[in-house]
């Protein structure tokens, strides 16, 4: 069954198709949830809400973009709703304060497991994590992110910068430990 056929069957409330859709995409959705969540437990809660929302909203899917991209957008929406009140609306950190973390030797990056990468992202403050995911992974611009999170574009830039630095510092610390 093609993706389009599967979606149409789900719209018609075909139970088997709904299960098939879940089996086909749940692992990718789970990975997305892990990127946006603070921890695994939160990721599971988000995943549950995401699939409930997906089945409700399937009639609105217009086949104009990729289906997985549409689902990832729902993940973001649900996660944003969960953490929105914890987001920093105005970043006060000094961007230049810690701009000297080396970024050239990242050989350890390939040695990190996916689980460790998720863990690192989950350690970020909520706002940093959102911006990092949206900019680095999803490819949105700062202006788009600012609109989505109702923050300033400058705040988005600042939070991205801080997120990168925190991640770099944690990765380098892991590198030193391994040495």
């Amino acid at each position: 069954m093609t993706e389009q056929e599967l979606i149409r069957a789900c719209v018609q409330k075909n139970k088997a198709a709904e299960k098939e859709l879940y089996l086909r995409y749940s692992s990718k959705v789970m990975a997305t949830c892990l990127r946006y969540a603070r921890n695994s437990a939160d990721a599971e809660d988000i995943m549950q809400d995401v699939f409930v929302r997906i089945y409700d909203a399937l009639p609105q899917f217009k086949y104009e973009g990729s289906f997985i991209g549409w689902m990832r957008r729902i993940v973001f929406t649900i996660a944003l709703r969960k953490y929105q009140r914890f987001l920093y609306k105005h970043e006060k950190y000094n961007i230049e304060a810690a701009a000297n973390i080396p970024t050239d030797n990242m050989s350890i990056f390939d040695q990190l497991s996916l689980e460790e990468l998720f863990h690192l992202i989950q350690k970020l403050p909520d706002g940093y994590r959102m911006v990092f995911n949206l900019y680095v992974i999803e490819g949105y611009t700062h202006e788009e992110i600012a609109k989505m999170l109702t923050i300033d574009a400058g705040t988005s830039r600042s939070q991205l910068y801080k997120a990168r630095q925190l991640l770099q510092s944690w990765i380098l610390a892991m590198q030193k430990i391994n040495l």
């Binding site: 990975a31 996916l114 992974i137």
Partner: peptide
Amino acid sequence: LENASAPV
């Protein structure tokens, strides 16, 4: 991470 999968 973009196309990563994780156990459910």
